[in-house]
Amino acid sequence: MSFGFRSAKLAWALVALSGVAAVSIQRAEAKPDFVAFHGDFSPGTIVVKTGERRLYLVVEPGHAVRYPVGVGKAGKQWAGITKIDGKYRNPAWAPPADVKHDVPSIPDVIPGGSPANPMGVAAMTLAGGEYAIHGTNRPKSIGGFVSYGCIRMLNQDITDLYDRVPVGTTVVVAH
């Protein structure tokens, strides 16, 4: 789902509400999937391949950590280079205009920790738009074309990635 960060005011609302109804982030027993990875990307770069519905964190030349993801549905996909500009645990979520248009009954704000909150246990906002890499409370959506442009991850995977990357990390989204 789209994160709705067209204004600093909305970003501040997320920060202010991120402690509401906090849910603890649990580490999964599964270990990250380390794979061979080819491409001209520096270590520390996140690469999202929407066609594969996979996110790669390049850890060294030729190797990456791979995670399954949900990506933008038809008409909501995008590609480009951006950076992580914020990190939030248990974020509240305010649906952007396109989501409100499609689902008028959705609340104006869904508190962090709510099972209805599409952000899951953590979110990392992306500069230059209204998107984020975030967890989900709907794990069966992972692997599909399901969002309004955000990159959706299993809660245990967003927790792992969140701990591995800082604000400022480069994110490359490619079809």
Results as ranks from 00 to 15, higher is better:
His101Lys: 15
Phe145Met: 07
Phe41Thr: 03
Ile158Thr: 08
Arg54Pro: 05
Ser114Lys: 04
Thr82Arg: 09
His134Glu: 01
Leu154Thr: 06
Leu55Cys: 01
Glu130His: 04
Val121Leu: 10
Ala28Pro: 14
His134Thr: 01
Thr169Ser: 08
Leu161Ile: 12
Leu161Arg: 02
Ser24Gln: 15
Lys87Trp: 08
Val47Tyr: 00
Ser24His: 12
Ile142Ser: 03
Gly86Trp: 12
His63Ala: 08
Gly51Tyr: 00
Val165Ser: 08
Leu154Glu: 10
Asp157Arg: 11
Phe34Glu: 15
His101Asn: 12
Asp102Gln: 14
Gly39Trp: 00
Gln77Trp: 03
Pro104Asp: 11
Asp160Ala: 04
Asn117Leu: 05
Val20Lys: 03
Val172Ile: 12
Gly72Asp: 01
Thr50Gly: 06
Ser7Ala: 07
Phe3His: 13
Lys73Thr: 10
Lys49Pro: 01
His134Lys: 09
Asn155Lys: 02
Ile46Pro: 13
Asp108Pro: 01
Pro111Asp: 04
Gly144Thr: 11
Ala64Thr: 05
Tyr148Asn: 12
Asp40Tyr: 02
Ile151Met: 04
Ala22Trp: 00
Ala174Pro: 00
Leu55His: 05
Thr50Ser: 13
Asp160Gly: 00
Val20Thr: 14
Ser105His: 09
Ile110Lys: 00
Leu17Gln: 14
Val165Gly: 06
Ala116His: 10
Leu55Val: 12
Ile46Tyr: 06
Asn155His: 01
Val103Asn: 08
